[in-house]
């Protein structure tokens, strides 16, 4: 018996009826729809640091056109952003700010570490630079290069798309207690702030 790509093995269908179908085709999981939309509508936070930020701008330019992925909507407000592209070296002075921006972003959120300086400190192994932004925020995709060309960044973005669509990230965040409902511990003895959820 031939095999129909969308339905599955026709012999099994003939034997078991609808139970022989490989998957439902009248209904689908809403999770797939959500992942589909998340992957196609990643809004990056406007977060440029150093050389890599210039290449990030170039990625938004006419030659590379990040808008193809629906990502030209750089959001200035971290509340509305989905992905933070850490583009460049993170200094000790910038680290708290970067973490604050990350905390201000709403779940689900992702981080791309762009360039070697963000990923590992790069050539600046000295007093001023944080040796890898993953010491501060959880990084999902690392883009290598100094600076990574726009093609590399696009590849990182497509990689992130695939990860989002394959649902890996949401599971990971569930596992480590991420997601909505967390509290942020305050420095110097201030009270912890409960994040108000409306739904």
């Amino acid at each position: 018996m031939p095999r129909i790509p969308i339905l599955g093995d026709t012999a099994e269908i003939a034997e078991k009826g609808l139970g022989g179908l490989e998957h439902n085709f009248l209904t689908a999981r809403i999770e797939d729809l959500v992942n589909w939309s998340r992957a196609r509508s990643l809004m990056p936070a406007t977060f440029g640091l150093a050389c890599c930020a210039i290449e990030m701008m170039a990625t938004g330019g006419s030659h590379y056109d990040i808008a193809r992925f629906g990502m030209e909507t750089f959001r200035a407000s971290p509340r509305q952003a989905d992905v933070m592209i850490v583009s460049g070296r993170v200094s000790q002075k910038m680290a708290p700010v970067l973490r604050q921006i990350y905390d201000q972003m709403m779940e689900p959120k992702w981080v791309i570490s762009m360039g070697v300086c963000a990923s590992s400190g790069g050539m600046f192994n000295n007093y001023a630079i944080v040796q890898g932004v993953d010491q501060i925020v959880p990084v999902d995709v690392y883009a290598p290069g100094c600076p990574p060309g726009p093609e590399t960044l696009l590849h990182a973005i497509v990689t992130l798309h695939k990860m989002i669509e394959s649902d890996e990230l949401v599971k990971r965040r569930d596992a480590n207690g991420g997601g909505a409902g967390v509290t942020v511990e305050q420095r110097d003895g201030q009270t912890a702030t409960q994040i108000v959820l409306s739904r």
Partner: peptide, 23 residues
């Protein structure tokens, strides 16, 4: 004062102190 010759150049531990403000 980092540029003094007796200040270590190498990587120092991250002096990260956490977020300073509520979300």
């Amino acid at each position: 004062h980092p540029l003094r010759k007796d200040f270590a150049v190498g990587s120092v531990p991250v002096q990260f102190k956490g977020a300073a403000a509520p979300r």
